[in-house]
């Protein structure tokens, strides 16, 4: 059994410091976060509230007509507990016209459209509230590519992207995120009854352990199989990591000049700050 547990005090200190530094260094003091009612966005909200002060955090709830009532209620629990600002903007009327153009539209397409619509709303609120969009993707889903490109993966900074799902849970407990949010099955809530684990075909517990060996400990797939993981599972996960690399980077620019963005024009985002 791999030990994924972390020193939550230290994680909390480093991650709140990160949110504070990366937002305030460019002269901004506020954050905007899409709050789904799930654990990842709850944790990002809690970190941002601790970093910037509750009054400087805007939680944006963006339900679709089929979104579970629990999601809204759980989001409210967190908003009340943290005392952060909030706004609810329903996306149904924005996405339905597009859905209607194709009666045969798949759930996957609809899910992607909703995720991208939420991104549009969030970035619009970012301008209204004068805050940066704080990301809510964890390391497990980034590695698996379990996200919509330019949808839920879009953000200005991401404090939880180096935490596996199990570590998100551990830190969420330490930060007193309401228990119903921590305990419910993770779901993108894009259609009724959807859960991450049903869709992925494995549990977070299993895949976190495997990813930790493959990524953090640099195990080869073969070594992971020797360590006791099922061969088909290891191969499926390895393939997912590879196939989703495109979601983890900016689109490659075709190089023809001597100095090309992405290859030899190299500066951090924090350039000059």
């Amino acid at each position: 059994m791999t030990n994924l547990s972390i020193n939550t005090n230290l994680a909390r200190e480093i991650l709140t410091g990160f949110v504070k530094s990366e937002i305030t260094r460019i002269g901004i003091s506020r954050a905007v976060i899409g709050l789904s009612g799930g654990i990842d966005s709850a944790l990002s909200c809690a970190l941002a509230a601790e970093a910037l002060g509750a009054e400087n955090v805007l939680a944006v709830r963006m339900p679709y007509k089929s979104s579970s009532k629990d999601s809204l209620e759980h989001a409210q629990l967190l908003i009340d507990q943290l005392g952060i600002q909030s706004v609810t903007i329903e996306i149904t009327e924005m996405v339905e016209p597009l859905f209607k153009l194709d009666p045969n539209m798949s759930a996957m397409r609809k899910g992607n459209i909703m995720a991208r619509e939420r991104m549009i709303v969030l970035y619009d609120q970012s301008e209204v509230f004068k805050g940066l969009v704080v990301g809510t993707s964890n390391k497990t889903e980034i590695l698996l590519g379990y996200s919509t490109l330019y949808g839920d993966s879009a953000s200005a900074l991401n404090p939880i992207g180096d935490l596996y799902k199990a570590q998100v849970r551990q830190l969420s407990r330490a930060m007193n995120i309401p228990a119903p949010i921590i305990d419910k099955p993770p779901s993108a809530d894009l259609w009724e009854g959807q859960t991450d684990e049903k869709e992925l075909g494995f549990t977070y517990e299993e895949v976190d352990e495997l990813l930790y060996l493959l990524v953090d400990q640099r195990y080869s797939p073969l070594e992971a199989i020797e360590a006791g993981f099922d061969k088909t599972f290891v191969e499926a996960v390895t393939r997912r990591i590879q196939r989703n690399q495109f979601k983890r980077m900016l689109p490659p620019v075709a190089k023809i000049s001597n100095r090309t963005i992405g290859y030899d024009f190299l500066y951090l985002r924090d350039w000059g700050t």
Binding site: I6, N7, L10, I14
Partner: peptide, 11 residues
């Protein structure tokens, strides 16, 4: 750069 956070007291 800090790295290697686990359950120990320090990085």
């Amino acid at each position: 750069p800090g790295r290697g956070l686990n359950d120990k007291e320090k990085l």
